[in-house]
Nucleic acid binder design. Structure first.
Length: 874
DNA sequence: CAAAAATGTATTTTT
DNA sequence: TACATTTTTG
């Protein structure tokens, strides 16, 4: 009894169904009565866009630069397919990367085509479509169709248990790290058997593979999946059951993929399985793949399997042609590939024409979003990348009124926030909507300072992304209760809340439940029930356990009868969970209660507890209220796909952006990805773009002197304007930036990065050495002269960050010393009681010395911890 | 078993 | 620094 049948979804149903045109046309008709000529939606498309919409047959790759109307093409294309009766809504597979994108496509298609969207069950993220497939064919993957989807937290806890079971040192082999590795393998489509020997050895003294296997087995017994499985299981099913695959080959007449540059190997395999229809095919494809050094994925081999059966019904006859034709349309932009770190393979997009011979490639290069200045800046920047297909975006002729891209220096991050805040207030006074303003940061810790500032200014802001609703402690607890009620065998959820609120069920008791569960082969909840009736357990925990078990069985019964929202309320009430927070006097308790209410409220939108749980597992974010006029604050990554009238990009400093870690781990490729991220950031802006950098930033609680991002140097001068801030300390930025006669040598920097790999942590010798190198580079490239009196900080042309008088720090010296351990080197640099001077904090005396970290009592600024490199003897 | 203290550890992005 | 997690203490 495999999952719900197609007919439930009203999709492709039978040989005698109406002709496709029928339904689609009717749907259209309902939505937009008679006058809606089929070509209506085509109006306003430029020739390339139109071509992308109308080339419905065969493989199509649309290379859509930023702001060129990518989503419009995608949605119009679907509308076109429907309107011309080429397919039923249910015969279109449209995959996106994020829920946001899926949602947007649904709405936009909806407005084009009306209710037909209702019948588009296969529009969604890779993962949500994966779940759908898997629910139907769960038994082929050894699961029941009511399997649960584990989130990262569940996974980590599970792995931790496995590591403990193996008696491994948890500190040496952290669960998070291993779950990361598993994630990576799954992104590559590798099961336990497929991982490389090296990978297998890399963890836990060679137990990597064994652990991975154990993990998968555990998932199976738990009847659970992690995110990766949502893709991998379907892939495996398709490979092992050609009949199932064929079913989907018949079903999906058109495949559309959004953000193709972000697909990882697993997603790529998945797509190829679905897209490459079995017909007589030469093996050259497969050869190509291996010849080019790609992993010989089994997709290609298994593909070649049975030839299309031509025997069946009229449908086979109709589709015989189409089945060989791969109507796949991938839309993407190699310049916006920013998820390489999580397994995305830009290569997928670069290789498209080889994968799908005869593909039509359409470039969308006309930008409808940004001014010529912004576009000019972005294009010039991205041109520094080598690995790209190369597009040339263009726009209308520049309007002399258009503002240039602003670059502004600040002293530290606090000032940066102040400057941005002031600029926003100015804009607001001129009638600028806050909703049209965004601040895009590289890393989320940067947000705090802006939030602080906006709070004091009373400026509305909204954080997008960030810590997500469903990841909050109280929500996860509540969800765990619900999960156990919905499926009594969800051990992970059970374990999470047996002792919440505190019932005196500690480690010992839980272990006992665990053991019983193992021994008897029953879920923990059941085991708890057994235990509560036996006398192997002390009276106190026994009573508590009894109550828990009784609670759950009562709730489970109510599941059938009581509306799920009421049940949810009852559960939280009777379990004492809400009471727990009511009694909690801490500052966050009221907020948590509020969140719980919100949770119940959001459940109303779903028809059952189960469907709600599914939603939460897949869509981890909660919607925000759009009514409020507020500045958006988010990371660059979550800004992809959005656009704003005005964009602020703070933190353009080496080490932060490009991020040190990207450089360390990714080398040149890492740098290029950072540059693409910068490109994404720049191209979010329609009209006003402000870049900021500061010379002092606190990282890990230590003050670091920073230098401007190399990306600033990669912007074309003619599109950029440097703002002189009248009231700020000025920093070294403006003067240097403006008069840069010898631009920052990117190659030089690359060399440094390549020849002396930084280590992964800021506190390490590698990082410090990097700092030293950069100090050097800064002097050379930003026109700083040593020998200036330090008093001159604050005037435009002066060096404020480095150099002058800081005798104890010479790059070379540091190089030599820092090979040693960071905490033990140069013990003699300063000693307690020394008078020192710091660029930011002024004079002070050393209160404590820990290797190169000094605790200093500053005369004005109070006690701070700083690296010795940033102070000099007073 | 729970609360307090100490310790450690990571601070990029997320379906 | 700041947070989470572990160890110690009551």
């Amino acid at each position: 009894m495999s999952a719900p049948s197609d007919s439930a979804r009203g999709s492709f149903s039978g040989p005698n169904g109406p002709r496709p045109g029928g339904i689609a046309a009717r749907a259209l008709g309902r939505a937009t009565p008679a006058e809606s000529a089929p070509s209506d939606y085509l109006r306003g498309l430029n020739p390339e866009q139109r071509q992308a919409v109308e080339t419905t047959e065969g493989p199509v790759l649309v290379l859509a630069g930023a702001g060129t109307g990518k989503t419009r093409v995608l949605t119009t294309r679907i509308a076109h397919i429907l309107a011309t009766g080429r397919a039923f809504p249910s015969q279109i597979l449209a995959v996106t990367f994020t829920n946001k994108a899926a949602r947007e496509m649904k709405t936009r298609i909806g407005s084009l085509v009306g209710e037909a969207v209702e019948g588009m069950p296969w529009l969604g993220t890779f993962h949500s479509i994966g779940v759908k497939l898997l629910r139907r064919h769960a038994e082929l993957a050894g699961l029941r169709s009511d399997f649960t989807i584990l989130d990262t937290d569940d996974v980590n806890r599970l792995i931790k248990q496995l590591i403990q079971a193996e008696n491994l040192d948890e500190k040496r082999w952290p669960a998070r790290q291993f779950s990361g590795m598993i994630d990576g393998w799954k992104n590559k489509g590798q099961g336990p058997k497929d991982i490389s020997e090296g990978d297998a050895r890399a963890f836990a003294n060679g137990k990597g593979r064994q652990l991975y296997t154990a993990y998968q087995e555990r998932l199976k017994t738990l009847n659970a999946c992690d995110f990766g499985d949502l893709l991998l299981h379907p892939i495996r099913i398709f490979r092992e059951h050609p009949d199932v695959l064929r079913e989907y080959h018949r079903k999906f007449k058109y495949i559309l993929v959004d953000e193709y540059q972000d697909t990882n190997t697993a997603q790529y395999m998945w797509l190829r399985l679905l897209a490459q229809r079995p017909k007589e095919r030469d093996t050259s494809d497969a050869k190509n793949l291996t010849a080019e050094g790609r992993k010989p994925d089994r997709a290609s081999a298994d593909q070649a399997a049975p030839a299309e059966a031509s025997e069946q019904s009229e449908r086979a006859a109709v589709s015989a042609n189409q089945l060989q034709q791969i109507n796949i349309c991938c839309v993407g932009d190699d310049d916006q590939s920013i998820y390489g770190w999580r397994g995305a393979e830009v290569d997928n997009i670069l290789r498209f024409e080889k994968d799908f011979p005869g593909a039509t490639v359409i470039k969308l290069e006309r930008n409808y979003r940004s001014t010529a200045h912004i576009l000019g800046a972005a294009s010039h920047l991205i041109a520094h990348n080598e690995d790209r297909l190369g597009k040339t975006l263009f726009t209308e002729a520049p309007d002399p009124e258009d503002p240039k891209v602003n670059v502004q220096a600040g002293w530290d991050s606090e000032e940066e926030a102040r400057i941005v805040g002031e600029t926003i207030e100015t804009l607001q006074r001129r009638g600028h909507k806050l909703n049209d303003i965004a601040i895009l940061v590289r890393a989320s810790f940067q947000m705090r300072e802006f939030e602080d500032r906006f709070v004091t200014l009373g400026l509305n802001y909204r954080v997008i992304g960030g810590p997500r609703f469903y990841e909050r402690l109280e929500i996860r607890d509540a969800m765990a209760f619900f999960r156990v009620v919905a499926s009594a065998s969800d051990d992970l959820a059970f374990e999470r809340i047996v002792n919440v609120p505190k019932r005196g069920l500690g480690e010992a008791t839980i272990r006992q439940i665990h053991d019983t569960s193992r021994a008897m082969g029953i879920p923990m909840l059941e085991a708890a029930g057994e235990l509560a009736e036996s006398d192997e357990i002390k009276p106190k925990p026994r009573a508590a356990l009894r109550e828990v078990v009784a609670n759950f069985s009562r709730w489970q019964k109510l599941l059938e009868t009581l509306p799920h929202t009421e049940l949810a309320e009852q559960i939280l009430e009777e379990s004492g969970y809400t009471a727990m927070w009511k009694n909690d006097r801490s500052a966050e308790a009221p907020g948590r209660l509020e969140n719980l209410k919100e949770l119940i409220r959001s459940m109303e939108d779903y028809e059952s507890l189960r469907s709600f749980l599914e939603h939460v597992a897949l869509v981890m974010d909660a919607e925000q209220n759009e009514d409020l006029d507020a500045v958006s604050l988010m990371t660059l990554h979550s800004a992809k796909g959005l656009e704003f009238e005005t964009v602020f990009l703070p933190g353009w400093e080496e080490g932060l952006f490009p991020h040190q870690r990207a450089l360390d781990e990714g080398g040149r490729a890492g740098l290029e990805e950072e540059r693409r991220l910068a490109y994404v950031g720049l191209t979010r802006a329609k009209r006003n773009l402000y870049l900021n950098f500061v010379s002092n930033r606190r990282i890990h609680g230590l003050w670091q002197t920073t230098i401007p991002s190399r990306f600033l140097d990669e912007l074309p001068e003619k599109h950029v304007e440097v703002i002189e801030s009248s009231n700020s300390y000025g920093g070294y930025g403006s003067g240097g930036f403006k008069g840069r006669h010898n631009p920052y040598g990117a190659s030089r920097f690359d060399k440094a990065a390549a020849s002396q790999p930084f280590s992964s942590s800021y506190g390490t010798p590698g990082w410090q050495r990097a700092q030293a190198n950069r100090t050097d580079a800064t002097r050379n490239n930003w026109g700083m002269r040593s020998g200036h009196a330090v008093e001159r900080i604050g005037y435009g042309e002066t060096d404020s960050g480095f150099g002058a008088g800081r005798g104890s720090i010479k790059a070379r010296t540091i190089e030599g010393e820092l090979v040693a351990k960071s905490v033990s080197n140069e013990p003699a640099a300063f000693k307690v009681g020394d008078r020192v001077f710091h660029q930011k904090f002024g004079n002070g005396s050393v209160a404590a010395v820990e290797g190169n970290k000094l605790t200093i009592d500053f005369d004005r600024a109070g006690q701070k911890r700083v690296l010795d490199g940033f102070v000099s003897a007073a």
